[in-house]
Design a protein around this nucleic acid. Sequence first.
DNA 1: GGTAATAATAGTCATTAGTACCATGTACCG
DNA 2: CGGTACATGGTACTAATGACTATTATTACC
Lengths: 248, 248
Amino acid sequence: MRHEMHLTIETVCFALTEGRLQVLLVKRTGEPFSGAWALPGGQIQLDEPFDAAAQRILSESAGVWGVYLEQLYTFGDPGRDPRGRSVSVTYYALMPAMSVGSGMRTARPGPGWSAAEWHPVDQLPGPLAFDHGRIVSYARWRLSQKISYSPLAFHLLPENFTMSDLRGVYEAIVGEEYDPSNFTRQMLARWDLAPVPGTRDRRSRRPARLYRYIGPREIPGSPDSLDEIEMETEPALDPASSESETRD
Amino acid sequence: MRHEMHLTIETVCFALTEGRLQVLLVKRTGEPFSGAWALPGGQIQLDEPFDAAAQRILSESAGVWGVYLEQLYTFGDPGRDPRGRSVSVTYYALMPAMSVGSGMRTARPGPGWSAAEWHPVDQLPGPLAFDHGRIVSYARWRLSQKISYSPLAFHLLPENFTMSDLRGVYEAIVGEEYDPSNFTRQMLARWDLAPVPGTRDRRSRRPARLYRYIGPREIPGSPDSLDEIEMETEPALDPASSESETRD
DNA sequence: GGTAATAATAGTCATTAGTACCATGTACCG
DNA sequence: CGGTACATGGTACTAATGACTATTATTACC
């Protein structure tokens, strides 16, 4: 079986531009789905952890690196790749808004792809290759769920940000509008936010205060950051008696 | 590379007995970790969906079937198996309390295992094989998180149950005690619960009312139950192409 | 400069949700 | 038959939320 099964990594990379959630896509050059947009993806190397592979693939195929990564789901339905059984461990990635258009993290296609571009997630350029549309849908849904109990939003913002910035992230992801005053109150209550002295001139009217998130960067308990939670185990007594004994 | 990578499925199967959360373990007979307890697991067949594989493996290795399944995480760190690169797509399973000890779903070891038993999750019989201890920890943590926003608890109960039963599930999983009165009020507000006429004689004092959960069995949006969420796409213009072979 | 426009921030208040706790009902057990 | 245990009902207090108004600091424009 293992000879015929392909294992790949695909990453849904998100960033916020102009108040809209964007996803990073690359254009395929080979069959099948030649010419279609797809998620940056590729094969895992033999001695490479998943996260490292995802980072590498993202940088090789789209010129983007240094993102925050979290495993999303593993898709393995027979038939999702017309060539044969294919298993994709998928990740989603978040990167700060400013990094997108500004120089070093501009998307550009790597070898094997003819283009790499950011696209608004609610306005994709046609159906994606394979089941990648479904993967994007699910990533987006997960994002919208998880942002309420995990400090994901701060990975989409630069180190210092205003409450408007933060509100923009929530509004883009959740798709609802929030009252600025109530929103600020809730954020200050929920997260560890430290005020930063200066103000960033957003050429708006009244200058907005700057904040910095100083809490944990991810929710404790995730397997990426699992510190082998304390677990009481009995000393392994009796490795001998090995009969089928049903407990309870 | 694909020749050297193993892909397996492991399942953390939970059930509640005597108010404690139990996990289903099997005892290994082969190296490595011969004689150690491990999660029921095995290889995926070439044309088999993950869920089907998990159900099959659970029934083959531990004699248990018909459980509720949800994908947990995919573990693929190099070094997690001393024999070489191994990737495990893990699931967690939930089954009603009554099924455990009662006949048809008694745990019993399949070929290749010397034992199959339920063990209290906070009192495991020594360190588990491979990184399975870590997997159990994570499954348990996920369960404790997800029970608050997903109707997981009802998969651990028979069709009809009392509020005490339900409260027992929450207390075993979350590890806190709840005020019976407040708990009932919250459950009735959060979930779709229909009262069932009779009462089950739990030989307690005052007979408790029976309820049945009539809402959706899993949270909508999960990829297992994804109905290809609506997504506006522009028509795919420019299907120009070239060569090269990139997989996904 | 004066003033309108705009968005940030502050504050108010009614409603809702959450928590602690007491009261009563209905069994079982001496 | 009274005591105990647990299910259920209810009440009062507190915290969180949401809708709304007010104030403030800046820019744009005249």
